[in-house]
Amino acid sequence: MVTEHGGVMARVRFVQRDGTEKNVEIGSSISVMMAAVRNGVRGIDGECGGCLDCATCHVYVDEAQAGLVPPPTEDEIELLSNVTAPRRSNSRLSCQIKIPSSIDELIVFVPENQS
């Protein structure tokens, strides 16, 4: 499936702490954070719009998929160092994740709170 802007469509499955899920279609040029905000996914704020300033879009990438998305930059690692929800090895800032063509559906878990 191709969007009107030419980005290939993939899907993100956002899983909340209570187990409820929301599936969102996402073009390849849009970050997982932006997809969440545009679709009103609870618990992802994305205040700064993706310029690595606010750390309010923390998610846990499904462990089986964590290695399939490009690794975090140093700035992202620094911001993740002190997020409010527990930091785990699969913690990411979702503004930095665009879905690679190798993934049809990315599963992310929304933490209890944002910074």
Partner: peptide, 11 residues
């Protein structure tokens, strides 16, 4: 250019 400090200070 010290986002880690900033996150710590915030908390």
């Amino acid at each position: 250019n010290r986002p880690g400090d900033q996150m710590a200070a915030r908390r």
